[in-house]
Design a protein around this nucleic acid. Sequence first.
DNA 1: TACATTAATATGTAGCTACATAATAATGTC
DNA 2: GACATTATTATGTAGCTACATATTAATGTA
Lengths: 233, 233
Amino acid sequence: MTDKQRHSWVSIRDSIREMILNSTYGPGDKLPRDEEFAAQFGCARSTVHRAMRDLAQSGLVERRRKGGTTVRRDPVTRATLNIPITRLEVEQKGSTYGYQLIRQSVQPTSPAIMANFALPEARPMLRVEALHLADSRPYIFEDRWICLETVPEITSVDLTRESANEWLVRNRPYSRCDLRLYARPGSANDSEILQSKPGDALFVMERTTWIGEAPITSLSAVAHPGYQLFTQG
Amino acid sequence: MTDKQRHSWVSIRDSIREMILNSTYGPGDKLPRDEEFAAQFGCARSTVHRAMRDLAQSGLVERRRKGGTTVRRDPVTRATLNIPITRLEVEQKGSTYGYQLIRQSVQPTSPAIMANFALPEARPMLRVEALHLADSRPYIFEDRWICLETVPEITSVDLTRESANEWLVRNRPYSRCDLRLYARPGSANDSEILQSKPGDALFVMERTTWIGEAPITSLSAVAHPGYQLFTQG
DNA sequence: TACATTAATATGTAGCTACATAATAATGTC
DNA sequence: GACATTATTATGTAGCTACATATTAATGTA
């Protein structure tokens, strides 16, 4: 009795995931070809393909041309982080956003920033240190380097009024973003800026972006004690 | 001269992104319909659709049926975190993996864990405290709660030999995963287990997973001082 | 046997059609 | 004018065909 109802790729995906879950296909096993699954489910290969692409993206299976599809031996947890503009993050929590430029100057790239960009030699960059506030309390301190060759217009932006964070995100989409997250103890300098106590544990987000091969910006954002980063399911 | 060469959805996506980048379409603007773009580029609507889906997923545009496609006013940085099994993470760094069960006992759900699962009432859970080691040094300490109703088989697993982390990830795929990341100062207890100094800043990853509506596990993983979490671009 | 060449194969992509779905706009009725 | 009903519209999905691409397997040759 061939079922003639249409099958959504979501239901196909769930069926295949279920089979992997209940060990019909175990870790390392090769799955049937898309065409076979299509025949089995009574749907088109394109529908199976869509389902498979999703399973591959979520890290459950691996696909290789000619090699076929295999269940990953070492499943990974893949989570998508949503990092909004800081102002919006603050406002969404119902707080009043504040912004404060601390320092800005043109400098040659520091070794650490060169490493972030994987640059072989130093380039002129604008270094901007600024503080984001929530209800007048320090929220996130950012130490940002902006590549002047890639973003020359930044010099004509009044960074005392508009944060570089916001200007860049609105005016300079990027094609690649590297992220690094870690914790570090607050220094004396942190204490002063973030009004934290020395010895507080601070959450640090380092972000480096490119457009094509050209470096845009690299920054380290240090959050106030108690800050938490969530996934948006 | 209509170009009859085939256009890949990647190149279409890049073209549209480029237009958004160079302000042909600004934040909040409505983009042309897929069909119009297709005519403009000389490709099929499905190709534009594929490109648009990618742009929507990366957070640059928003799509709504009938409403059309608009450039997001508040672009977000979307980054995908890859959280592998701890053993593999350690081995991939070239270190020798070690594992040590510290405690395990059946307990009613603690209020904090109930909140993570959004459970209205307590359920019997297996609480497992274990330490992952890299080259015999503490790497990550995990305090895990496993729902016995959803995963009854866990009671027959010898958790002194195999980590719950590994058993679950191999045997219990999840459909939903919530993640929370933050920093906290090390306590005296942490110092003992992680061999950290009191006052060290510790990186904490809290992870809660479900299969369908059923809770699987909720854990807090505390990493050794110096631990960093990366995105895999 | 060793190595280069060729064939086979499973996934990946582009293009088309047809229809589904959600959200807005237009319309009708009281 | 207020509200329910209906049409319109842009995206979303399913199915099909054809071809591209990467990789393995098979084959041929020295």
